[in-house]
Design a protein around this nucleic acid. Structure first.
Length: 517
RNA sequence: GCGCCGCUAGCUCAAUCGGCAGAGCAACUGGCUCUUAACCAGUAGGUUGAAGGUUCGAUUCCUUCGCGGCGCACCA
């Protein structure tokens, strides 16, 4: 195909499409300016521009006395105040914003003509020297201006008014939450706070990695596309491999593949990656989310409790200079050691029931009134329902809840001296599960029993049968040393440490419904 | 899946009891060589989410649908 063939959109050659009366006027106007620029011989989409400073660095350089220095900076035009023969504008980049000042006398005529064809949002590079305006703002006196990229669509830039008390009010901002997620590029472009959240996310994930690397863990990558799924109870996403003509699943957890690596003498491993669960969407659930799982040979769940505290503390220290955070209108103190309480003590504390002796009927009565079909729930489902409805909401500061009923924990070792319990704990923060960990079950025969029990339970509930992961049991036959394992919801940790209450605000591209263009 | 609320100019929002669909910002034209929500004068911009119904008349009332927000359910 020749590049001279015009592309059509809605039946019009694309250039006519942009010029068409059907387009909103701001887009038509910008397209007209694009053509005017080309008529001037200006390439509106530049190839590169070398800068000497980021905008924030340029600002700081002046404060450090570099006023005579010529600088080259670049960014998006965030505001533009044209006064006829001079103009002020603010440029914005990732580091911040900086004012520029253009004077007709001080520039080549052609560059002044470019200036007059600029719009908010356009990318420009400028060269000039720094000075301080009469009102005290550090500003670039521009003597050369280069257009780097012409925007055809106005960004939803709000105007920021600085009130007398120093507080800022944004007028006509980008308020449509749906559009902010659908057009995350625009959201990021106009909201520095959104960029800050994702910068914090990168720091948090970096801190987790650094901590584990320093502790001698090996970072690994295990299959996302799996012939069997396991390691958690959740519905999977199902797909098909054409060449192998085989059903495959996106992983719902990393667990079983990571523990195989401990069998393989990789005695400390971790993985940070996406897992996929085919469940509903809400404020704390997205179908794909990030999980950190780590496994350490010779460790048990007590060791994992210490690791949990250290991991979260390391992540918090990377983005906060304190241990108290506000989250979902609650004040959460992350400082260690965390409170520890057994599962049954926690149930007793918030329901006055001894779940070990209580009848199924008593357990049902303790459920919230709006519980769905409580009569169909078995003992372990009732306990889980009680725990999430009556206990979790009350746990604000990080709390280690340990010794879960064993039937709720098919991959955890039985508790020493009490086979009805499993050596498992969860960390609940702000009413939300953050961490799940256990002494890993390493007895292949016990593991087979538990898998088989699960398979029977699925049959009883007439769910699609799920094959036992025979290969995983074979790996256990080769010998899994005593091992502690821990899984941490990365997105929830980022939410906690950045004060966000919705998982979508810590995911760049959360799952949304199909949007009909 | 259920309930409540919302969808009006490019953006943020108004519109009384069902009676001519408006404002600010952005845009466009002109003016202005230290402005900063720049300013001054003017101009243009609408299938009120979609379809249907009631009515002389619907942004407004009713029904269905779409999308979103919040809550519930689901998610050991």
């Amino acid at each position: 195909m020749s590049t001279s063939d015009p592309g059509y959109r809605d039946g019009l050659p694309i250039r006519d499409w942009y010029a068409s009366e059907e387009r909103p006027k701001p887009i038509r106007d910008r397209y007209a300016k694009l053509e005017a620029l080309r008529d001037l011989g200006v390439e509106p989409y530049a190839y590169s521009y070398s800068t000497s400073h980021s905008l924030a660095d340029a600002h700081d350089a002046y404060e450090e006395g570099a006023d005579a220095e010529r600088i080259r900076v670049a960014g998006r035009i965030l505001s533009l105040r044209d006064m006829g023969k001079s103009a002020f504008a603010h440029l914005g980049d990732r580091s911040g914003r900086l004012q520029i000042y253009c004077k007709r006398d001080g520039m080549e005529e052609r560059e002044w003509q470019i200036l007059e064809l600029l719009d908010l949002g356009d990318w420009v590079g400028v060269e000039g020297s720094l000075f301080r305006t009469r009102t005290g703002e550090i500003t670039v006196h521009v003597d050369s201006l280069t257009l780097l990229s012409k925007t055809l669509r106005p960004l939803p830039l709000g105007k920021t008014e600085v009130l007398e008390d120093g507080s800022e009010v944004v007028h006509s901002g980008f308020a449509d939450v749906e559009m902010r997620y659908r057009q995350r590029y625009a959201d990021l472009a106009v909201h520095p706070a959104v960029r800050d959240t994702f910068a914090a996310r990168a720091k948090i994930v970096g801190a987790l990695r650094r901590f584990l690397d320093e502790q001698g863990y090996l970072e690994v990558e295990t299959p996302i596309l799996q012939p069997l799924y396991g390691g958690a109870f959740a519905r999977p996403f199902t797909t098909h491999h054409n060449t192998l003509d085989r059903t495959m699943y996106l992983r719902i957890a990393d667990e079983l593949y990571l523990k195989r690596l401990i069998v393989g003498n990789l005695d400390r491993v971790y993985e940070i990656g996406k897992v996929f669960r085919n469940e509903g969407l809400d404020r704390t659930h997205n179908p794909e989310f990030s999980m950190l799982e780590l496994y350490r040979a010779y460790a048990d769940y007590e060791d994992m409790m210490a690791t949990a505290e250290e991991l979260v503390s390391a992540a918090a220290a990377a983005v906060l200079d304190r241990t108290v955070v506000e989250w979902n209108h609650q004040t959460v103190d992350l400082s260690t050691p965390w409170k520890r309480i057994s599962f049954h003590d926690a149930i007793r504390e918030f329901t006055d029931l001894d779940a070990r002796v209580a009848s199924l009927d008593d357990l049902r009565k303790a459920l919230p009134e709006d519980a769905d079909r409580p009569e169909e729930l078995d003992r372990s489902e009732l306990l889980d329902g009680l725990f999430s409805s009556r206990v979790e909401p009350n746990l604000v500061n990080p709390t280690i809840v340990f010794d879960y009923p064993i039937e709720m924990s098919p991959l955890a070792k039985p508790k020493r001296g009490d086979p009805e319990l499993a050596e498992r704990f969860e960390v609940i923060v702000g009413g939300t599960e953050l961490i799940n960990a256990f002494s890993e079950l390493n007895d292949p025969i016990d593991q087979w029993d538990r898998f088989a029990a699960q398979a029977r339970a699925r049959e009883d509930e007439k769910l699609e049968p799920q094959s036992i992961d025979v290969d995983y049991v074979r790996a256990l036959e080769y010998g899994l040393p005593p091992t502690g394992g821990l899984g941490l919801g990365v997105d929830r940790l980022v939410m906690l440490l950045t004060g966000q209450s919705a998982i979508r605000d810590v995911l760049l591209y959360p799952v949304l419904r199909q949007y009909d263009e």
